[in-house]
Design a protein around this nucleic acid. Structure first.
Lengths: 331, 331
DNA sequence: CTGAAAGCGCTTACAG
DNA sequence: CTGAAAGCGCTTACAG
């Protein structure tokens, strides 16, 4: 079977304790000579420490669990990339668990997996935990951090400031002369959607612009939600601009607008939120509020690791507005 | 700290052995009465088995490691979804490790992580392992299975039959009257690209159609590779049809063709390979060879678990041709 | 600088 | 039906 510390000890004519210390790089408990000998033998025998065994005794783990919604959106990949890179840097490993959207049982199952394994902490990606499952998470007493979704202000999270996203997106369109602006595709029950809408409304209010109810179209961030919203706006909407709350929503809006023969951006401006690669592969390319998903993942790991000191805080990452072809200045 | 078997034993006034047996559902070693009592206490105390400890003594693991290329393509998500669902069904957990494309060191690092942890087996997703890393993988003596990429015929894999994909795609276009057909975006060094090109050539040969060198444009399956290929074909190509070897490649071809004012599909037919959601969000929608990525993941886990019996075999999954708006019949 | 002893949480023969 | 003993691979005081 796999070679253990004992095998090396035998081969080096030395105790397993010393081998353990050397291979764990403990300080000042052995001579340089034995250290070198042991390392060579370990190398030659193809030794790999059984980390699970080590974790069992130290009662520490270097595994970060990432629970991710089997998301219909498409930015998760970038976040995971950031998480991975960060984990490598800090010497942690990642366990990825996916969870079905809007399925509390699936959430519970994922949390139970975590309960059964030695885990350092939990990262929750775009995940809207039910109250009950949130309690289950808290009961584990593990450090945790929400990424990209701010689950109200009860829990620690890292994300863009969604109120600001809604506010800035709207302000951008107002600055371009638009006065009839819609927003589409966000969920109405989750914090993230509420914040974006709140920012949207605030910007309009400050400019003394009014809104019709039908201009705010809720959805689930999918392509289909974008299509549906555009159909609600109809083939000849009063609107001259709409904010798509995800890239897929915006592409849905775009395609449906084209089907209505509404020229984008001449007749209708579309400003997308997210700014993934998708914005560049459609025509016209989508102007977008671009979030830094990679950093969200990267800093998410950092924050989790150092969390002890600053619990229950919001960490906001900057975003930027990138204008491409789907928005235009009104005369 | 976490509640253990001993805590339960104490509370139930019984030995830890019996508790262990009950909570592991061993047969006929205890009375129904004690079993029920123990289960109730476990429930009440919020007990969760330390699986790492159990795996240490049984020397068995129910963790499947999935090594995935931090892919520029976009179908990985579906495969992972299939893997997850299948893993749940069979009672396995998934550890996901990402690896940078074309980075042998990154591959080695991922394999080392696996070596240090109790793992049942390894699934490799769209991953072109270097010869050295492949040897490292074999040295672990763990069962493994390649998914979606057939790494030559040396290793077990599950994927579509890429020769057939190339062959059927080409035959489809020939049946539509095309005689000048290109293929674009695949790598030239990996098995998958070679197979698709071989199938492509075979179909042309059988129909006695000739090819110009420049019609075969290699790449790395990205959007940019599609753009570049189209630029190589030029603004007025002889070609009337081209096979994009991934959805992103095909979208690159499509956009570049539009920039050249080549109408798709009237002047140029594009047939995509993969058939992810992307084919439906561009205009015209892309006709595609659609692979069953979900099943690839789902059956990948099954195959890995049952692998003992049928090693080193190729498992092919069916694909289908779905015609959308990017292909047309030639007069 | 080196090692014997005890133990992390669990399971598996073995004996009753 | 129940339990004492030994051990999975590792680490941590403690003693020399």
């Amino acid at each position: 079977m796999a070679v253990t510390i004992k095998d090396i000890a035998r081969s080096a004519q030395i105790s397993a304790v010393t081998v353990s210390r050397i291979l764990s790089n403990k300080q000042g408990h052995y001579s340089a000579a034995t250290a070198e000998k042991v390392r060579k033998i370990a190398q030659k025998m193809g030794y790999h420490k059984n980390i699970a065994a080590a974790e069992l005794v130290t009662r520490k783990s270097h595994v970060v669990a990432v629970i991710i919604s089997a998301t219909k959106t498409n930015f998760a990949e970038k976040i995971v990339e950031g998480i991975e890179q960060s984990a490598i840097k800090y010497g942690y490993n990642i366990v990825l668990l996916t969870v079905e959207p809007n399925n509390p049982q699936s959430q519970t199952r994922a949390l139970k997996v975590i309960l059964g394994r030695p885990i350092y902490g939990v990262l929750l990606l775009s995940l809207d935990l039910t109250a009950k499952n949130f309690r289950l998470l808290q009961a584990t007493e593990l450090p945790y951090l929400f990424i990209s979704i701010g689950v109200s202000d009860k829990a620690s999270f890292i994300s863009s400031n969604d109120f600001q996203i809604g506010y800035q997106a709207t302000s951008f369109l107002i600055a371009k002369g638009h006065t009839k602006i819609g927003i589409a595709g966000m969920t109405d029950d989750a914090y993230i959607g509420q914040q974006r809408v709140a920012g949207f409304k605030q910007a309009l209010r400050e400019s003394k612009l009014s809104i019709q109810d039908n201009w705010i179209q809720f959805g689930d961030f999918t392509y289909e939600a974008g299509i549906k919203a555009m159909h609600e706006y109809g083939p000849n909407p009063e609107l001259t601009a709409v904010i798509g709350t995800s890239d897929l929503v915006s592409i849905g809006l775009l395609n449906a607008a084209n089907d209505f023969n509404l020229a984008v951006p001449q007749r209708l401006s579309i400003l997308s939120i997210d700014g993934t690669q998708l914005t560049k592969i459609v025509r016209p390319q989508l102007s977008s509020i671009t979030q830094d998903f990679y950093q969200m993942g990267y800093q998410g790991v950092q924050t989790l690791i150092q969390q002890a000191n600053h619990k229950d805080k919001a960490h906001y990452l900057p975003f930027k507005i990138i204008e491409r072809g789907s928005t235009s200045q009104l005369p």
